[in-house]
Computed example of a mutant assay.
Amino acid sequence: MTATAGRDAGSAARHESDAVGPAPLAMVVGPTRLAPSVLRRLADQPPPITDRRFLAEFREALELLRPVLGTTAAETFLVPGSGTAGMESLAASLLDPARPVLVLSTGMWGERWHELCTGLGLPSRVLRAAPGHGLDLDEVAACLRDRPYQAVLLTHVDSSSGVRADVATVTALAHRHGALSLVDGIAAAGAEEVRQDDWDVDAYLTSPPKALSGPGGLFLVALRAAAVDVLTDRGWTPRGYSLDLGRWLPVTRTLAAGDFAYFQTPPGALVSALAESLRLIVAEGPERIRRHETLAVRLRTGLAAADLRLFTADAADRAHGVTVLRTPAGVDAARLVAAVERHGVVLQAGTYPTAARRTVRIGHLGNHTAADVDRTLAALTAALAETARAEA
């Protein structure tokens, strides 16, 4: 054997050893852990898109989304694409390029709403909450009184700040002033209470790989009557084609009836896996939200005991599935994340626009357990001790 061949063989052996070693625990905002039954569906051979069993499963996924989002009346859509593609789809499909919108930002994802609007040529005003704080609802009301807006764009849970918005109150304010309510619930649905009908939210968007514990590559939309009316009565041309929900509407209605219709090829294995993840959520029922609340309390109690402060200032604003903590003085977020991973747990550095290097995100969404939280706290404690020794 040559020296080169020996090095190659040794490298291959090391990679093989790495591959079979224990996987770290991923406590991230997404993608989250999939249930075994969901994984099995992903491994299935994708069916023909005209297959009757596949069409029945597509219809079931559209139906199961309604109780997850707290609606019986909304039209539901299942569309290929990322969560950001879903945000763009709502903006391009429902917003008149000639009329202004009000963007309410509690972090990175509110800023993403603004960037999308700018890219689509939509005039927009941004009202930003103070870092780590929820929206000032009096300021929201004042903005809506100040000038007419066609819509208010809101993030239910912003994973960069850990802030959960008061969707019900914001929607009521929007409607009082003749504006639609468009909500990004990508980091919320499945971990937070969502009551689209009771709150009268016009458009609610989510995506599977967060608290729904489903596969990435899809976005899910539920539109109530006022938003559907916009799709059918638009006097303007949407900027886009593949993401236009107006084009999807007749297709999704046919699919919701269990029959075949075509606009774009649906990703078969993803649809089947999504249907299974929604079945599990509906079967768990209200206990799912209580479980997320309990895990959040357990984690934050442990963080307080370790003298770690949260970025989200007020307890009433804190999400149930995402926790954003402040790093100790002098400790960079990337450095702390790397130290925690050496102890077997993967966290994510912050993404809040002005505090990314000083914050760390912990995702406890979907299928996580109390044992996962305890393991995370142990890894954080060990990493902090390691960091302190390095500085001594």
Results as ranks from 00 to 15, higher is better:
A91N: 02
L78Q: 05
T84C: 12
H114M: 11
G107C: 10
E115L: 14
P100V: 10
A92Q: 09
M108D: 12
L95M: 11
T84H: 12
M87W: 00
T76N: 05
V101H: 06
S82N: 09
M108R: 13
V103T: 03
T84F: 12
L102K: 07
T71D: 03
V68Q: 06
P80K: 07
L102M: 09
T106A: 15
A85M: 14
G81M: 06
T118K: 10
A91S: 10
V68C: 13
F77P: 04
P100H: 08
E115V: 12
E75F: 05
G83A: 15
A91P: 03
A74P: 07
T84Q: 11
F77A: 10
L69N: 02
A74S: 08
L116D: 00
G110F: 03
E115Y: 07
A73D: 14
R59K: 15
G83C: 10
S89I: 08
E88Q: 15
A61P: 04
L90M: 10
L65N: 00
A74G: 06
T76G: 07
L62H: 05
R112D: 09
A98P: 05
G110Q: 01
T84M: 14
C117Q: 02
L102S: 04
W109N: 10
E60K: 14
S82E: 05
G107M: 11
L78T: 03
D96H: 07
A61Q: 04
W109V: 06
A98I: 06
T76V: 11
V103E: 01
W113S: 03
T84P: 01
M108Y: 10
V101G: 07
E115A: 15
E60M: 14
L94K: 04
T106P: 09
T71W: 04
L94P: 00
E111C: 13
F77V: 05
L102I: 05
G83N: 11
A91F: 01
S82G: 10
G110Y: 03
R112E: 09
A61G: 07
P80D: 04
L116P: 02
V79S: 02
L90Q: 04
S105Q: 10
P80Y: 01
T84S: 13
L94V: 01
E115S: 14
R66G: 09
S93C: 13
E75Q: 15
G83Y: 07
R112G: 02
V79Q: 01
L65M: 12
A73I: 08
P100F: 03
T106M: 12
E75H: 09
A98E: 13
G110R: 06
A61W: 00
L65I: 05
G83I: 07
L104P: 03
E75C: 13
A74W: 00
H114D: 11
M108K: 14
V103L: 12
S93A: 12
G81W: 01
L104F: 05
G110K: 08
S82F: 06
T76S: 11
T71K: 12
T71H: 04
E111G: 12
L90Y: 00
P80V: 02
T71I: 09
G83F: 09
A73G: 15
M108S: 15
E115P: 08
A61K: 05
C117A: 11
